[in-house]
Design a protein around this nucleic acid. Structure first.
Length: 210
DNA sequence: ACATTAAGTGATT
DNA sequence: AATCACTTAATGT
């Protein structure tokens, strides 16, 4: 575990902080598909992502989901950070996109480290910034791109975060993430395949244009 | 062989 | 782009 921690955070955190993280943090392995944090849940820990990828979803009153963005290793969840400061509950749902390895830090450490470690302050601020940009990007995607571009972007992002251009996914699942109907997804995927951007098989889509 | 689930298609709004 | 109704194809039992 020391190794994994060092591997991703060695250049970010100072040695003393790394040691503290090690003693205070608890290592967690989450299998693919598990919900890490759901809407309305209070936040008790800050997750540091060691490996794998997480997708962040929003949900409407009817229970329809909408994908906001993915989080990759070396990142943390900005929602969690925001909740720590505001002492509010989660406004989003986080689902393990792949098997995920996390280091959970109790939120009590947040303020303490903010005061004592410059590297921690920088990390938090940087995370906020990066996440804010992601969110703007997500809004642009939803507001300005048409469904076919949105789906292509979705497939590319997904391929990127899992590090594999072969996606095991059904049209139905895509439609849920994109908040549209399966029929629309099928038609658009068909179009993308004709354009040579993807290849389709049952339960499997290969992304050509990355 | 049959049931189930995934994907394709035309028509309508 | 959404929805309906229906078909076809793949897969599990």
């Amino acid at each position: 575990m020391q190794n994994i921690l060092k591997q991703h955070y060695d250049f970010i955190f100072e040695d003393k902080l790394l040691q503290e993280i090690e003693t205070v943090g608890s290592l967690k392995n989450i299998p693919q598909g598990d919900i890490l944090i759901d809407i309305g849940q209070p936040i008790t820990h800050i997750p540091l992502l060691l490996s794998g990828a997480i997708k962040i979803l929003r949900e409407d009153q009817q229970g329809n989901e909408l994908l906001l963005y993915f989080i990759e290793r070396g990142d943390t969840c900005a929602m969690t950070l925001s909740c720590c400061f505001g002492k509010s509950k989660s406004k989003i749902r986080a689902v393990a996109e792949t098997n995920v390895q996390l280091l959970m830090i109790p939120i009590e450490k947040m303020e303490l480290w903010m005061e004592n470690y410059q590297s921690w302050r920088n990390f938090i601020l940087e995370s906020y910034h990066v996440r804010m940009m992601e969110l703007i990007d997500a809004v642009d995607t939803i507001a300005f791109l048409r469904m076919d571009d949105r789906i292509l972007k979705y497939l590319q992002d997904k391929a990127k975060v899992i590090g594999n251009d072969e996606l095991e996914v059904t049209h139905q699942k895509i439609s849920e993430d994109m908040h549209t109907s399966r029929v629309v997804v099928s038609r658009i995927l068909k179009k993308l395949e004709k354009e040579g951007k993807i290849q389709m098989h049952r339960n499997n889509i290969k992304v050509i244009k990355l």
